[in-house]
Amino acid sequence: MTNIPMKMRVADCFGQGEALNARAVHDIICDQYPTERYCSVRSVHEHLMSLKAVGILNDESSYVDDNGDLVSVYRISEYGLNRLHKAR
């Protein structure tokens, strides 16, 4: 269990400079929001797009997975690191 709002926790996953996609982020955080419907890959995906739009994350790469879905991979920006630091 964590007391950090999920969107902030999603951004926090990138704090060490890793490049991650929505499913990888979901796998990292899902244990911290147990039994919460809100913690879904879809919610994480939506948060990642929003974090990208405001410049906290940058597009690292993208690929088409085995199901034919487009998967985006993100990495945190310098601005994102500063923003996270201030929010903690």
């Binding site: 007391n3 709002p5 999920m6 902030m8 919460e36 809100y38």
Partner: peptide, 16 residues
């Protein structure tokens, strides 16, 4: 209804 009530509690306590 959308499963965000706990998120509301966490948000109210956060600096953000």
């Amino acid at each position: 209804a959308t499963g965000r009530l706990r998120e509301l509690g966490r948000t109210l306590r956060s600096k953000a």
